[in-house]
Nucleic acid binder design. Structure first.
Length: 475
RNA sequence: GCCGGGGUGGCCGAGUGGUUAGGCGGCGGGCUGCAGACCCGCCGAGAUGGGUUCAAAUCCCAUCCCCGGCUCCA
């Protein structure tokens, strides 16, 4: 069984077959760089990152393109509010965007095209659309004529008549149909503008994605992704523009992630409940945040709240603990029955992980498979103090690849045991050495008191058959 | 008004017509000098009302509730 994905276009799970053998081309709608990205954006980018990583794990060569919208109403407004130039605003926030992606261990796209650097290509596309009769010019504006594109609505399921009835937009008298959308907007006072056959102006939002996606990925490519809010009108319009231009299908699979809510509600400026990635990272580690964001299926809503993230933290801790225990085992050269059993269980769980990911990227189920490995490892460690070297490395590598390479969660062990100060590290070691001597003399009361006091100071002390271990309490 | 998603055990969260999701939590047991970590067992469920079926959380109908798209939005 190969990979199956839920295609918004058609609203059903389909077998995934890339257009070219061994290669997958993906386009992800990137940010409008007028502010820091928030954790809802992060959910979308992390999901795209995991799709990319899993496809690579499956042996595909993946090309991922994600745009940066650097000309837009919101940037213009921000520029007017702050007095900074539009270029400066988009520079600040696109830098911040990349920093946030890096912090979350989201791999950077292969190409991150900027709208302002593709104005001439967009003009060319618009001109072509006018020539083909899909677009019309009114004063300095150019609009796409939705009636000319038969399939309009095929992605979102919206019908034109219904759109007109429900239209809450004030009707623009220049448009032939209320659902027509701007390809080119004529210049307004104080706005940036480029010269075009229709006079000075700037491109509409939707045209940039169609144009840049086709430029870097070809007229037809494999996967187009984004949050579900983009289905309409953005992606619907992208399809209209691209397909009426080329007469070919635009993207073959459309994947849309559900919302990340905060307190059960969608994040919005008006509710004031937006949590930026930077703020979230002040409280939680990237690993915990990532683990939390993939603990629900991407097409299920997920609520960002303290309790749920605390649970994610504990769960992840459990995985790291098992890895730490595995790594602390002494190596030997003989392989016994317990090793065979451990390997069998880990291989079996790996298969379940792959099956889960093959089924429309079911990350919660994939995580359950990792917990199967965790239990197998822990059971082994409970019964053995040593492990055959090859078994150890196969088990570790299996977990490492799935956790780090596929899910993008860096394994954090070992370094948790150290503080940032060598002096403190040595002091703790010294105290534990003394305590060990007390324990040898069965001075339980004083030993327990030392452990208790250290705990109050934020050190976790654990006596194990392999000796006493310590680490800092997770923040 | 039109379109879509959902309601699962104390909590998070999957599968999907019959056989264990998983994790957290609680309880009991094991291992420990004790604690922790870990292992084992148990606890507990599918909004409501009907229907189909030998069998439904899973299919059908109705009802209630929640969320979203139709406007910038991941």
């Amino acid at each position: 069984m190969g990979l199956r994905v839920f295609n918004t276009l058609g609203m059903r799970k389909e077998e995934f077959v890339p257009l070219r053998d061994g290669e997958v081309r993906i386009y992800v709608c990137g940010p409008t760089v007028y502010d820091f990205i928030h954790i809802g954006n992060a959910r979308a980018f992390i999901f795209a990152d995991i799709v990319r990583r899993y496809l690579e794990y499956r042996g595909f060569n993946v090309i991922l393109v994600s745009n940066i919208t650097d000309v837009d109403d919101k940037i213009i407004r921000r520029s007017q509010e702050t007095g900074l130039s539009m270029q400066r605003i988009s520079e600040i926030y696109s830098d911040a965007y990349f920093e946030d992606l890096d912090a979350l261990n989201v791999r950077r796209p292969n190409v991150s095209p900027r709208a302002t650097q593709h104005i001439s290509e967009m003009i060319e596309v618009i001109q072509n659309l006018i020539e083909k009769g899909f677009a019309y010019q009114v004063d300095g504006d150019v609009y796409f004529d939705v009636l000319k594109f038969e399939d309009y609505g095929k992605l979102s399921g919206n019908k034109l008549e219904a759109l007109e009835m429900g239209a809450r937009i004030e009707v623009n008298p220049k448009k032939r149909n209320p659902a027509d959308f701007a390809l080119w907007k004529s210049r307004k006072e104080g706005e940036p503008a480029w010269y075009s056959p229709w006079g000075w102006g700037r491109p509409g939002w939707h045209i940039e994605c169609s144009t840049m996606a086709m430029k870097y990925l070809g007229e037809t490519f494999d996967i187009h992704m984004g949050g579900k809010d983009l289905i309409f009108p953005h992606h619907e319009n992208e399809i209209a523009q691209a397909e009426s231009l080329t007469g070919k299908p635009f993207a073959r699979y459309w994947l849309h992630n559900e919302w990340l809510t905060v307190g059960g509600q969608k994040m919005s400026k008006s509710l004031g409940n937006i949590i930026t990635v930077r703020d979230a990272l002040k409280i939680y580690s990237p690993q915990v945040l990532r683990f939390f964001l993939i603990s629900a299926h991407y097409r299920s809503p997920l609520d960002f709240n303290k309790e749920s993230i605390e649970q994610a933290k504990i769960n992840l801790e459990k995985i790291f603990n098992a890895i730490e225990r595995l790594l602390s085992l002494k190596e030997r050269s003989e392989r016994g029955e317990d090793e065979e059993f451990l390997l069998a269980q880990v291989r079996e769980a790996k298969k379940r992980f792959e099956e889960a990911m093959d089924d429309d990227f079911n990350t919660p189920l994939a995580i359950a498979a990792i917990f199967d490995m965790v239990r197998a490892v822990n059971t082994y460690v409970n019964r053995n103090g040593e492990i055959e070297a090859a078994t150890k490395s196969e088990v570790y590598e299996t977990i490492r690849v799935l956790l780090e390479d596929v899910l993008g969660i860096k394994i954090e062990v070992g370094k948790r045991e150290k503080t940032r100060s060598d002096i403190i590290n040595s002091l703790v070691e010294l105290i534990l050495e003394v305590r060990q001597e007390m324990r040898r003399r069965k001075e339980w009361e004083i030993s327990d008191k030392i452990r208790e006091r250290l705990q109050m100071l934020g050190f976790i002390i654990e006596d194990t058959p392999q000796g006493t271990k310590w680490r800092l309490k997770e923040t």
